[in-house]
Amino acid sequence: MQLLHYRSWQGTFHSSWWAVWPIARVALGTLLRRKLFWTLYSFGLLLFLMFFFGAFLLAWAESQMAVSGPQLGKMGDPGRMMRGIRSALRILNGSQDTFQYFFAYQGGIVVVMLALAGSILIGNDFTFKSLVFYLAKPIGRWHYILGKCLAVAIVVQLMTTLPALVLYGQRAFDDWEYFWHVNYFIDNDTGKGPAGIVLLFGILGYGTMLSVFLSILLVATASWMRRTMPLIMVWMSLFFFLRLLANILVDGLRYNVRWRLLDLWNDLTLLGQGCLGYASDDISPKLHPEFWEAGLVLIGVSVVCLIYLNFRTRGVEIVR
């Protein structure tokens, strides 16, 4: 056999942190080959298109109102009618409401997608013990964890922040005042909350918060449950049954409002609304904990997940 004649490596090895991207890329590649991913992604895309063209619908309605105002005047006050339409379509006007609803809807699809993809992205590494190959290379377990989290975060960003930024850009191109003027909606009496750069940072903050939390949670739960069905059940418990329980405790049994902190999805939404500049009184449900309390819960859950991951990846294989 002709033995490999290695040319001695004269260059500098990349830092172990560079290994994060190949790990993420492998995970993403595995996911992108699945039809299920593209099916759910197209649902997300449909939702995005609804918001995208909804803005045009609103603009068209306004223009029609201006042209046909006299005729409509017979039916009632055109200004009042316009306010009614705007109120009905307020989630399409590019305000904080638009992005709040967009993140909420897209987030729902993302949660379903991640519950279904967790096994492929992470669980299989533990089931088939492929983790051994990674950890035999000059990287630490935190590089592996970060690589996997990055893959999940990219999926979340592709589903939420990226299309949200497109929606923001669409609105800004339509009216540059929207981009420059923070009080655009208040001054024009077309809605509440900030616009401009503050809203842009709010969108980025919401997306980042969502992707960081969901990625850590998914990597931890998928390394725990590994298989798709148990993972779906865990996520159902976290995002559906805990929500139900929190609602029963707070709204039904009138327990302290802090019991709503059990509802992780509500915590995410609450913190996201904080990013988008919502005033506490504008948040629904009215009985809700403080932003910082929701933030603390999410940080706490993330820390627990990271501690578990540290433990889980320490011993790669366990004698049964």
Partner: peptide, 8 residues
């Protein structure tokens, strides 16, 4: 991929 993980 394994080669990239080696730092090359």
């Amino acid at each position: 991929t394994m080669a990239r993980l080696c730092g090359y």
